[in-house]
């Protein structure tokens, strides 16, 4: 009952969004905002093109590198700050402060250091992603109930057994939450970088389309990124919920 109602409600929401879109289209005209049908038609035309593949691959490559760096450094910093009490107490407010500033203001600095190529995009994406991964990993380690450590000692676990059999599974749900948020903001960082100063990538395609007044292309790329972000996030959220349900 509830499940079918849920599906119906989700469909209703999608229908409302499409109707709003169509309504806006009728209000402002095709040149400013193409309707859903026109956008879908353009999608079928754009996706097979070489131009799209080239730019999508450029974004994907920058995003992948940025994500690997963000996850690696974020986990390392998080473990360090979580395991070493003084470092954590000193470092946490600094990371929180960095997390909530508008990082776009630092992009020119990144460009001056790393240049206009892919490395600047990667660095900017990673800069976004490191912080939530580090903060949530640190919090996960701090939140391990102290009684788990006592149990490990009464069961005569070695240091490595304690780490792999107790600490690792105990922290996993919150760490995965950090990885999910890291995924989102790293993608945002890479796209922002491409929108500001780049000649390649999907962020560039959007800005380029806007300056050429090609609304269909702009909207199509934005919506594809939207769908990609939603799907990836749903997958990670599903993993997180599975881990949480157990815990």
């Amino acid at each position: 009952m509830i499940a079918t109602q849920r599906v119906t409600d989700s469909l209703i929401i999608v229908a409302i969004l499409l109707a709003v879109w169509q309504g806006l289209n009728l209000m402002v005209g095709d040149t400013a905002l193409p309707g859903p049908a026109a956008t879908l038609a353009y999608l079928a035309h754009l996706v097979p093109s070489a131009r799209f593949a080239e730019n999508a691959l450029a974004t994907l490559a920058a995003f992948t590198y940025a994500l690997v760096i963000a996850y690696g450094l974020g986990l390392a910093i998080g473990v360090w700050l979580g395991a070493h009490h003084l470092s954590g107490a000193v470092g946490e407010p600094l990371l929180v402060a960095l997390y909530s500033i508008p990082k776009i203001t630092l992009y020119p600095v990144i460009l001056l250091i790393f240049g206009l190529g892919i490395s600047g995009k990667v660095a900017f994406g990673a800069l976004h992603g490191i912080l939530p991964v580090a903060l949530l990993t640190m919090s996960a380690i701090r939140n391990i109930p102290p009684v788990y450590l006592k149990v490990a000692r009464t069961l005569h676990l070695s240091k490595w057994q304690t780490i792999f059999a107790v600490f690792f599974p105990a922290t996993l749900p919150e760490v995965v939450a950090g990885l999910r948020i890291g995924f989102t903001v790293t993608l945002l960082g890479v796209l922002l970088a491409e929108m500001f100063a780049s000649k390649r990538g999907l962020g560039f395609l959007i800005i380029n389309a806007m300056s050429l007044a090609q609304s269909e292309e702009m909207l199509t790329v934005a919506i594809m990124l939207f769908v990609f972000a939603v799907l990836a996030n749903s997958l990670l959220l599903w993993m997180e919920h599975r881990l949480h349900r157990r815990n």
């Binding site: 109930p145 009684v147 788990y148 149990v151 009464t154 005569h156 996993l172 881990l243």
Partner: peptide
């Protein structure tokens, strides 16, 4: 160290949720 032959049950819930 905890000697062999001693078992402890704690006040807090120490079951492993995973």
């Amino acid at each position: 160290d905890v000697p062999d032959g001693i078992g402890v049950v704690f006040q807090e819930d120490a079951s492993f949720p995973w």
